[in-house]
Design a binder for these strands. Structure first.
Length: 261
DNA sequence: ACGTGTTTAATGGAAG
DNA sequence: CTTCCATTAAACACGT
């Protein structure tokens, strides 16, 4: 089973980061590989053409998007708990042992993804600058050293591509913006039976067990999927395009998203 | 110059 | 084997 708390990026829905062919560099019309290492270039020459990879990926995603009940515009900002008393299906409390790492706490890589770490930092602080996020992570996890640029690049990358994170106003002082969680964001972290360490990771992380996953994630994905069909002005008639009206409760039941008393 | 933000691309692992 | 996601690296633009 695929990791339940992963989500469909907005880019996957809109296709904005999935060009059918490599995007030419703006300074010259050919694909710029000048920055690519020799090893990577060699690899690029032997692998499947990127255009084919992208085509396949786009095709498979289009199929997925058309294949569920999620293509309903009202789901975009829909909040389940405003309509019914949510009763989460009790079918799948997934118990999954986190990877055991025998390295010392100082060098052990925390068993959290970057989105999880960022999400927790923002959840604790409301909004943070990029450097604030760096600080939060490196304060708690010695693995992420303040003078290491590699993981910071990954943090920035995740902030940019993940719609879970929103760029807000400019920072009061210094460069950059304040980042926060999207309004409809739900907890990315699986429900672990040990809390994330408050300070330097003193508690052995290998004791953490994933005991379940947020069940409302399906709604979040549905909202993102629905973004592709927001009712819009028909370019030809000027009339508003509507889907068949249907009650929220009806669709929720029919899609099996929840059970309702 | 530096930090930040965006984008592209390669790679490896997990899961189907 | 294929697909998808997370991670990592890198280029580049922009603002301070």
């Amino acid at each position: 089973m695929r990791t339940p708390f992963t989500r469909t990026y907005l880019g996957d829905i809109t296709g904005w980061h999935a060009p059918l062919s490599p995007v030419p560099n703006s300074k010259n019309d050919s694909v710029n590989t000048s920055h690519t290492s020799t090893a990577v270039k060699a690899n690029m020459a032997t692998k499947t053409p990127e255009s084919e990879k992208w085509r396949r990926r786009k095709l498979s995603k289009n199929i997925d998007n058309d294949n569920d009940c999620a293509s309903l515009a009202w789901l975009l900002n829909f909040r389940l708990d405003e309509v019914v008393n949510v009763r989460v299906p009790d079918d799948e409390p997934v118990v999954k042992e986190a990877k055991v790492d025998v390295e010392s706490p100082a060098v052990r890589k925390p068993p959290y993804t970057y989105p999880e770490l960022i999400e927790r930092a923002l959840r604790e602080n409301g909004e943070l600058t990029v450097s604030g996020i760096y600080q939060w992570i490196s304060d708690r996890f010695p693995f992420y050293k303040a003078n290491d640029e590699r993981w910071k690049n990954s943090v920035r990358h995740n902030l940019s591509i993940n719609p879970h994170f929103r760029k807000g106003a400019r920072a009061p002082q210094g460069a950059g913006h304040l980042w926060s969680l999207a309004a409809n964001a739900i907890d990315l972290l699986p429900l672990r039976n040990t809390p994330m360490p408050e300070e330097k990771a003193a508690e052995p992380l290998h004791t953490a067990k994933i005991i379940g996953f947020p069940k409302v994630i399906v709604l979040d994905e549905a909202a993102i999927a629905a973004a592709s069909i927001i009712p819009d002005q028909d370019l030809f008639s000027g009339s508003t395009m509507f889907l068949n009206p249907v009650s929220a409760e009806q669709v929720i039941r029919e899609c099996g998203l929840i059970t309702v008393d």
